[in-house]
Nucleic acid binder design. Structure first.
Length: 460
DNA sequence: CACTGGAGCCAC
DNA sequence: AAACGTGGCTCCAGTG
């Protein structure tokens, strides 16, 4: 094993980052315990109801016959034996160890009320047992208020990203609105404060463009009129860009663009896209179903779609021709040396997969832009003896509990750091950077976009 | 009883 | 070269 030291700057980033994270942990996030208790009780009642109705079902009678006293409603393995074994439902997918798959996607196609109810139950249990109960258990009292103090770690992730624990504040539900509402309403600003979240826009794609220095990628990441995810949605679904719906764009982003950049290939991506078209009920902006639309373009089967995505991938490689060649040189260089460097001064020695080599130099340094920003903003808040505090961090966003009289100053400064100062600090970032700003005087769930207008920040 | 790994699912 | 990456938490099932 060859060991190469990381740079002093990289060490300093982690040291100062850890100190800033310690301040964040000490500050903590205010919790509305009444909301948590109430929501816990509500979810608990609902869970009891669903469990009772499952136990009355004929399917559960079979379950009991098979498992007797060992019957456990929470066991996917037991469910699988009952529906695939006893009821003769066809098992289409298996896990790595050969057991029948019982995740939400595998169960979705099974048209049994019992199975649908079971899936619903599992989802609700996740909300209650992981998120609500975690927050309830870990909250501590200070005066009349409750706070959680999540840990933010810099020493656990080998790509030099961060992680969070006790509770993990970086995986609180947001995409599923119903779940998000149940959980995020629990996180509230201190009295006289508002919660402020500032996110880097498209940080990872910009980190990607900066790392590969592909001129077409840099153009996409720099020109606000260009949008790679929208354009690739157009190509994947054979739509003119003005008929690309929000959903289509999101699927192109998460099931084509990022997978492609991180080492997936057309067979996996076509399969994922094809099933998600029906799962998500994907439509064009005009409201036409994507399957129907593709049929008019001569694509009727999964196999035909795969052939199409193969051509889209070829075009993607031509569009970003420099990237397409540079990634193999990057991989070869690693094979020769046994280590690879990050733009932020870290060195990664050891045994890595090809996909690690594609992902780490982007994910790590992209996070470091956020980390550096956290350090600056935290130092500024302390130096000026402000009452506002950073209370959390989620890879490319900062959550702060801002004293209302300090709100304008805070927003001006945080934007300056995240868009200007970080680029002065690191010249490897060769695209512009933007932030999206959200504010709430009520809860983390209720945040809404803000913008700057004639020097004043206002609700957008 | 403590511990471990698999499976599943939440985030970026 | 292999088939998108990084985490944390909970429950189940098995082990000693």
């Amino acid at each position: 094993m060859i060991f190469k030291p990381s740079s002093p700057a990289a060490y300093r980033l982690l040291m100062e980052g850890s100190a800033a994270f310690a301040d964040i942990e000490e500050a903590g996030i205010r919790v509305d315990m009444r909301h948590v208790d109430r929501t816990m009780r509500g979810a608990g009642e609902k869970i009891k109801q669903i469990e009772a109705s499952l136990r009355r079902d004929e399917v559960y009678k079979i379950w009991r016959r098979v498992y007797g006293e060992k019957a456990s409603l929470g066991s996917g393995e037991q469910l699988a034996r009952v529906i695939f074994g006893n009821l003769g439902v066809e098992c289409k997918e298996r896990t790595a160890t050969g057991k029948p798959k019982t995740d939400a996607e595998a169960l979705e196609g099974i048209d049994l009320p019992f199975v649908r109810k079971w899936s619903m139950l599992e989802k609700l249990k996740k909300v209650r047992n992981t998120f609500l109960r975690g927050t309830q258990r870990l909250a501590v009292r200070r005066g009349d208020d409750w706070f959680i103090h999540p840990s933010f770690n810099l020493h656990l992730v080998w790509t030099y990203r961060s992680s969070s624990s006790e509770p993990n504040f970086q995986n609180q539900p947001v995409r599923d609105k119903r779940q998000a509402k149940l959980i995020r309403r629990a996180y509230i600003p201190r009295d006289g404060h508002v919660l402020v979240e500032t996110d880097f826009s498209s940080m990872e794609f910009r980190g990607c463009a900066s790392f590969w220095k592909d001129s077409a990628m840099v153009a996409y990441a720099s020109d606000p009129k260009l949008d790679i995810h929208r354009d690739m949605a157009g190509e994947c679904f054979l739509l003119p860009v003005d008929n690309v719906s929000k959903d289509c764009r999101a699927f192109a982003k998460n099931q084509f663009v990022f997978p492609e950049l991180y080492g997936s290939y057309y067979v996996s991506m076509a399969a994922g896209l094809w099933t998600s078209i029906s799962r998500a009920g994907l439509k064009t902006k005009d409201g036409v179903g994507i399957y129907e639309h593709l049929r008019t373009k001569g694509i009727r089967t999964a196999k035909e779609f795969e052939g199409h995505i193969k051509r889209v991938e070829q075009k993607f490689n031509e569009r970003f021709a420099h990237w397409s060649r540079a990634k193999d040189r990057w991989w070869q260089k690693y094979l020769e040396r046994g280590w690879f460097p990050l733009a932020t001064g870290f060195v990664c020695p050891g045994i890595f997969s090809y996909n690690n080599l594609m992902n780490t130099p982007i994910q790590g340094p992209s996070f470091h832009c956020l980390l550096w920003s956290v350090i600056q903003v935290n130092a500024w808040l302390k130096k000026n003896k402000m009452r506002s505090k950073i209370v959390g961090q989620i890879h490319d966003s900062i959550l702060a509990d801002v004293y209302e009289p300090e709100l304008q100053d805070y927003l001006n400064y945080v934007r300056e750091v995240m868009t200007v100062k970080v680029r002065e600090h690191w010249d490897w970032i060769i695209t512009p950077l933007d932030v999206e700003v959200d504010v709430s005087d009520r809860s983390w769930f209720d945040k809404s976009p803000w913008k700057e207008e004639n020097g004043l920040w206002v609700s957008a």
